[in-house]
Write a protein that binds this DNA or RNA. Structure first.
Length: 895
RNA sequence: GGGCGGUUAGCUCAGCUGGUUAGAGCACCUGCCUUACACGCAGGGGGUCACAAGUUCGAAUCUUGUACCGCCCACCA
């Protein structure tokens, strides 16, 4: 840091930089104490509800969550200010498999297992850990300033939500849409549970195709089979060929001796087999491949399971028993090779399914599971998007959603885990099933059944089976509560794209089926947070950042607005540590400009709700015009779910229009002078609108400034939380006036540029000569010289239509004016000549372009008249400026 | 194998219905302790808009194709 820099306030010696730590916690407490975030179902205001995507209790929140929750808070806070009964329901998800995997890992380190512990103790242990994380997570949201209604906090394992789960199970079971089936499912040998299709991630591996020879019984002939999983041959119960394949027609019906195990298996003909692929012969392993399972059904083949639940081989594998699947593969291939059964090995790229939680390769595995029939559920959920009653932002995600809906498959909902909602099914000894969350009561059972004789299904439900009910289970469903009546359906769901299928799509189905109405109308899909190298941020990769770390260093406001600014609408943000400096700088800028306004108010009570329209100078009208335009743009950005654009619009308005121009323009020439009262009023009025427009993004600093404006302490009654959100009737929007201001700005900028390029010392002031084409321009300048004198470091202004160049002086030509700066002794003729020549070259290029265009007959014949006029005006302007510059260049050469 | 995004200044991104001298922030260079802000102010340099063809009077913007990057879906063993 430069020792000359003025880090401190000259009077007090204290740093004037904004210090978030001093105000954030106190402000948050103020909001909580006043109940500002609590929704009232009896309110006459229109509801605006968001349910939080409940974070998994497996871990504290990372920057991805910080982004998502910033977005939700922005939407909620803005609507609260707009007069809606805005409710944001917070909570957390028990994250069945994810949580259990982590707890089991910890147990392993301690040298024990869940089975050793037993179900009750294990659940107790998991609960303790999960609830600890949940508290940490909810605290992170508070530190971020999230305006959640904490009186409505929910957890997916809460009593009420569990009741909803059981109710839904019963509903679907009685409808026949939940069924139990003996089927091939995705099995994770590491987590030792089934997974739904959507929980399997396909990863490409470099693998091989093994070509194995299967000998015909009583012959030396053989058939060669290509396989990617040779170990599954231990469970083969047939070979299959295409019925159209003439090469193998004579083998159909013959018997094959399975290598190594020497079992006899038939050759069958099945149209599933593609004669073009591999050898055209397929080994059929009904217990370990979904297609083979189907073939097996068609040909009445035996299903031989060769795997234990942990992925090791079982007694059906003969001598390979107890070996892990991959070790068994190795040894089996060796033996096949030794015995001459291995024809060749090809390299092969294989897309293998892996578990989305532990990333081990999953196995197709035959087992007894519960499924939900999805086709009917998908109907209204598909229609909702097709008719536009449910919209995705950006819209292209609706294609992804529809593709999944239209190819929907039944949902395997049972998990061989303990952490979660236990399947509400009770079995009698005779196999009869009863649906009930708790042990059924005697009076609810048919004659001949006793509650004590029933045993509950051991498995739990997929974690998403509770999540998909979240938009209404959090409101007390299945009871028709006041909350449900007032706050359902919710408005916006904000999430990342990765859970569109797992969660979003299923919530839509559930909303229609169980409540009869879609759960939300808009789905906002934001990008995935990546690090500075574009790698997705995650705890496991070690590149994750804890939002609390950023908050501690920069403050919650900086965290929030930096993330919003850094996240392009619909794309992935790349975040590095200094990403947050943008936000910190902006928050400080806001703080500083408000300090300036407050100092100038000097204790006077400002008027925030109106301005005296008879007491405005051109600059006041200009900033009001810019303000109204900004409000319109921001509202439009929000309507289109372009949050990044909205943030940038406000950022630019505050920094450029308000701070850099307006405040500088109304500053008096001399330090001691007061700002013109009418302008100070406008400055304050606009500042009030600025903090309101920005409050959803940076809630703390804006509340702090607002309280300063209304002259209250943090603990006072006043608050910005309820806005109102600034509106506009557009009556100050004035194109002509903005154009006039741009002329003044152009003069100021030209002067600054000349001075800088000629290295004029900042302290050196000079007179300013402006030769104009149009006398009204001169009047404009003359009338406002007092305002921009210090910006351009000007003593006297000489302007009019007949101003002569004072020699020696620097020259600039802008549209409609020539600017002269008499700088005797300060002008290096060479430098000045280069400057002018450079500008001439620049203009020459532009002139050539436009001249060419205007010489083109097709252009003149086809282009609209206003475009042609504009080009003509441009040409005239360039010509004029070139002429003037040339004249000036001649004079310079004459020195 | 199918689908969807992306490719604009050294970096991260704007540029909405085709006509702007193609912009911003960061980084870089120059000057500055200017009456709120050095977390700042002023000025400046830097781009054949991935490539090719097409539509058009006119293309960063529309169409088609190619290349590369990323994501998603998929039961070819």
């Amino acid at each position: 840091m430069n020792s000359m820099s003025k880090e401190n306030d000259t009077k007090t010696g204290k740093s004037t930089a904004y210090s978030p730590a001093e105000v954030e916690d106190r402000l948050y407490k103020k909001w909580l104490d006043s109940g500002a975030f609590v929704g009232n179902p009896k309110s006459s205001k229109k509801p605006y509800t968001i349910v939080i995507p409940p974070p998994n209790v497996t871990d504290v929140l990372h920057l991805g969550h910080a982004l998502n929750n910033s977005i939700q808070d922005i939407l909620i806070r803005r609507h609260r200010m707009m007069g809606f009964e805005a409710v944001w329901i917070p909570g957390a998800d028990h994250a069945g498999i994810a949580t259990q995997v982590i707890v089991e890992k910890r147990l392993a380190k301690e040298g024990t297992t869940r089975r050793e512990m037993g179900r009750e103790k294990f659940l107790e242990r998991t609960r303790e850990w999960a609830y600890g994380n949940k508290d940490k997570i909810l605290n992170q949201l508070r530190k971020m300033g999230c305006s959640c209604d904490w009186t409505r906090t929910r957890f997916t394992l809460d009593e009420g939500l569990s009741r909803a789960v059981a109710e839904v199970f019963k509903h679907l079971y009685e409808k026949g849409w939940i069924y139990r089936g003996h089927r091939i499912v995705n099995w994770c040998p590491s987590c030792q549970t089934s997974l739904s299709d959507d929980e399997v991630e396909h990863v490409e591996f470099d693998s091989h195709l093994w070509y194995i020879r299967y000998k015909l019984k009583g012959s030396d002939e053989y058939l060669t089979v290509a396989t990617t999983r040779p170990e599954t041959m231990l469970g083969d119960t047939a070979l299959a060929v295409s019925p159209k394949d003439m090469r193998y027609k004579r083998f159909v019906g013959k018997t094959i001796i399975l290598p190594i195990l020497e079992r006899e298996i038939p050759v069958v003909a099945d149209s599933y087999v593609d004669p073009e692929f591999g050898t055209g012969v397929v080994k059929v392993t009904p217990a370990h491949d979904p297609n083979d399972f189907e073939i097996g059904k068609r040909h009445d083949l035996e299903e031989i399971n060769i795997l234990n639940t942990d992925g090791s081989l079982n007694e059906n594998a003969g001598k390979f028993k107890n070996l892990d699947r991959f070790e068994a593969r190795k040894q089996l291939v060796d033996e096949l090779s030794r015995k001459g059964h291995l024809e060749k090995i090809d390299k092969y790229k294989l897309a293998a399914g892996t578990c989305y939680r532990c990333h081990n390769v999953v196995e197709p595995y035959l087992s007894e599971q519960w499924f939900v029939k999805m086709s009917e559920l998908a109907q209204p959920a598909t229609a909702a998007v097709k008719t536009g009653s449910l919209r995705f932002h950006p819209d292209y995600w609706s294609k992804t959603y529809l593709h999944w809906m239209e190819n929907i498959r039944d949902w395997c909902i049972s998990r061989q885990l303990w952490w979660g909602h236990r399947i509400p099914i009770w079995y009698a000894e005779d196999g009869t099933m009863f649906v009930s969350m708790d042990r059924p009561k005697k009076e609810d059972l048919p004659d001949g059944y006793n509650p004590e004789d029933l045993t509950q299904d051991d498995d739990v439900l997929d974690t998403w089976f509770s999540s998909w009910l979240w938009p209404f289970s959090t409101m007390g469903w299945p009871d028709n509560t006041p909350d449900l009546q007032k706050f359902y359906p919710t408005k916006v769901l904000s999430t990342a794209s990765e859970i569109i299928f797992l969660w979003v799509a299923r919530m839509v189905m559930a909303g229609y089926e169980f409540v009869g109405e879609q759960p939300f109308s808009d789905v906002y899909i934001h990008g995935t947070v990546r690090d500075a190298n574009g790698i997705k941020m995650s705890k496991s990769l070690g590149n994750g950042i804890d939002p609390l770390e950023i908050i501690e260093k920069y403050g919650a406001d900086s965290l929030r607005i930096s993330l919003t600014l850094a996240t392009p609408d619909g794309q992935d943000p790349w975040i590095s540590k200094n990403t947050f400096e943008i936000g910190r700088n902006f928050v400080n800028k806001l703080h500083q400009v408000s300090r300036f306004v407050m100092m100038r108010l000097d204790g006077r009570q400002p008027v925030l709700d109106r301005i005296d329209e008879n007491d405005l100078v051109i600059f006041d009208r200009w900033i009001l015009s810019r303000l109204e335009r900004t409000i319109r743009t921001v509202d439009r950005n929000f309507a289109e779910f372009r949050l990044s654009a909205a943030t940038k619009t406000l950022y630019n308005f505050v920094w450029n229009d308000y701070c850099s121009w307006y405040i500088e323009l109304i500053k008096p020439d001399q330090p001691g002078q007061e700002i013109r009262p009418g302008s100070l009023n406008v400055a304050t009025y606009v500042l009030d609108k600025i903090v309101k427009l920005l409050h959803p993004f940076v809630p703390f600093v804006t509340e702090r400034i607002y309280l300063d404006l209304v002259g209250q302490e943090i603990e006072g009654e006043a608050t910005i939380v309820f806005g109102p959100w600034p509106t506009t009737d557009g009556r100050f929007i004035d194109d002509e006036l903005e154009a006039s201001l741009e002329q003044i700005q152009a003069v100021v900028t030209a002067v600054r540029s000349m001075r800088s390029e000629l290295n004029v010392p900042p302290g050196k002031k000079s007179d300013l000569y402006v030769q104009v084409d149009d006398p009204t321009f001169a009047e404009l300048l003359q009338g406002h010289i007092e305002y921009f004198r210090s910006l351009a470091r000007v003593n006297d202004l000489h302007t009019g239509t007949r101003i002569k160049r004072p020699a020696p002086s620097a020259t600039a030509v802008i549209s409609g004016a020539e600017i002269f700066l008499p700088l005797e002794g300060l002008i290096d003729i060479e430098v000045e000549r280069n400057r002018v020549e450079k500008e001439l070259q620049n203009l020459a290029v532009q002139l050539e372009k436009v001249s060419k265009k205007l010489a083109n007959q097709d252009f003149l014949a086809n282009a609209p008249a206003d475009i042609i006029d504009r080009e003509k005006a441009k040409k005239a302007d360039y010509q004029d400026r070139i002429e003037k510059l040339n004249k000036n260049l001649e004079q310079i050469m004459g020195w």
